[in-house]
């Protein structure tokens, strides 16, 4: 996982609520056994016309102003539905490393951190302000400073990023979660010994 660095990037606007994982990455693309290459399928059913190839000019992310965007600003309850990690894989592979919404579905939220994406929760009023700034300014760039826990915009909006300290550190350093957990292997083993005595039938 790439370390998450402070960046100033174009913010793309997706003014839709309940964007579900079936929209983020439709099921026909879940058959691959690799982790990479999902970006071209991101939002497939919305993004392409019926031929599946021609970009749909009405789809928001196809607007030239959003080209190269790393920040996605979307409506409530983003990422609801399935546990498929193909969703953050597609988002990351497309080029986003930040998603901003008022709320995220639990599994999607956790999946983001494993893939160098920060999901930022904001209040409905903050979301309205961010959306208004993107709508009113072609190609507006926001700055995300995870170290300082701040999101700032040219229009003067400053938002404190609330993030769990452990997840923040993992993102900043691009850490492997498994390696961290395995540092506590002695505790896992001790737990298993105790568990085996208490619930022996689980181990037969």
């Amino acid at each position: 996982m790439q370390p998450y660095k402070k960046h100033t990037s174009i913010a793309a606007l997706m003014d839709r609520s309940n964007v579900d994982t079936d929209q983020i990455i439709p099921k026909q693309f879940l058959k691959k056994v690799e982790r990479t290459g999902f970006g071209i399928h991101l939002f497939h059913d919305w993004r392409y016309l019926d031929d599946g190839i021609t970009p749909n000019p009405d789809f928001e992310l196809n607007k030239p102003a959003f080209k190269g965007a790393k920040i996605l600003v979307a409506g409530d309850n983003f990422g609801c539905g399935s546990s498929r990690e193909h969703a953050p894989w597609a988002i990351e592979d497309y080029g986003f490393n930040t998603v901003i919404s008022t709320s995220f579905a639990d599994i999607f939220f956790s999946n983001c951190f494993k893939n160098g994406i920060i999901p930022i929760k904001v209040t409905p009023a903050e979301l309205d302000a961010l959306m208004a700034e993107i709508s009113g300014n072609e190609g507006v760039e926001f700055t995300v400073d995870l170290e300082e826990e701040k999101l700032t915009t040219p229009g003067g909006i400053v938002i404190n990023i609330e993030v769990d300290p452990f997840r923040k550190q993992s993102l900043l350093e691009g850490l492997d979660d498994i390696a961290w957990s395995l540092k506590h292997e002695d505790k896992i083993t001790a737990f298993e010994e105790k568990h085996k005595q208490q619930l022996p039938w689980l181990w037969k």
């Binding site: 982790r35 399935s82 546990s83 498929r84 990690e85 599994i107 999946n111 494993k114 498994i178 957990s181």
Partner: peptide, 10 residues
Amino acid sequence: FGIGTSEVEH
């Protein structure tokens, strides 16, 4: 509960 693939590996 459901988990993502990175968590499956974990």
